[in-house]
Amino acid sequence: MKLEDCKLGGTHLKSSDFEKCKVLTTEWTPNLGYAWDNGVAIGRYLAELKEGKIIARICHECHRIMLPPRMFCELCFRPTDEWTYVEDTGVVNTFSIARVNWDASRRGPKEPPLIPAVIEIDGATKGMGILHMLGEIGPDDVKIGMKVRAVWKKPEDRTGAITDILYFKPVRAAASKKAAAGRKR
């Protein structure tokens, strides 16, 4: 058989065929609502975020300090052992300069780009990253390997959500040393 010799299905429609109603269509917006149980690990994670802290979980078998926290170690396949707070600072593993919103709509010319990043959190096992946003930095200044610190919402505005951290901002070496010294566990 050769594809070239076959009559292939698939009738292409232009977007104007929809707009001008050349074809019949029907619409549906499903009401797909959920209330997912946070469970032990994520429940505690969110509760600590509300307090302005990031908490991780340790597995004594593989000695990993895991973020986001989990009640079982997916590699050792056993329960994890204890909680530990980690820093609210980290290192940019990778980043993007996003001009597109979640639904593929474009950000307007006056809207600044979004800068999502994978941030390896200090105090967790090397490589333990989380997805979050960078802020207070121009797109041209972002670098892989740069040190960043969480910028938290005001305590009264926090709800126990990943968005209790507004974004991570760059830290200068001196400032970071001072902050680390003053930080309470």
């Binding site: 994670y45 996003a98 597109v100 639904d103 994978v118 946003m133 892989i144």
Partner: peptide, 30 residues
């Protein structure tokens, strides 16, 4: 692309309103 928002973890990632392209961009950059 709108369908891809909900491939991310519903609690720890979706509130950041990610798009699928982010994750590719992050990987490509790395």
């Amino acid at each position: 692309q709108g369908a891809f928002l909900t491939i991310f973890d519903h609690t720890t990632e979706q509130p950041l309103k990610p798009t699928l392209i982010w994750i590719f961009a992050l990987e490509m950059n790395r």
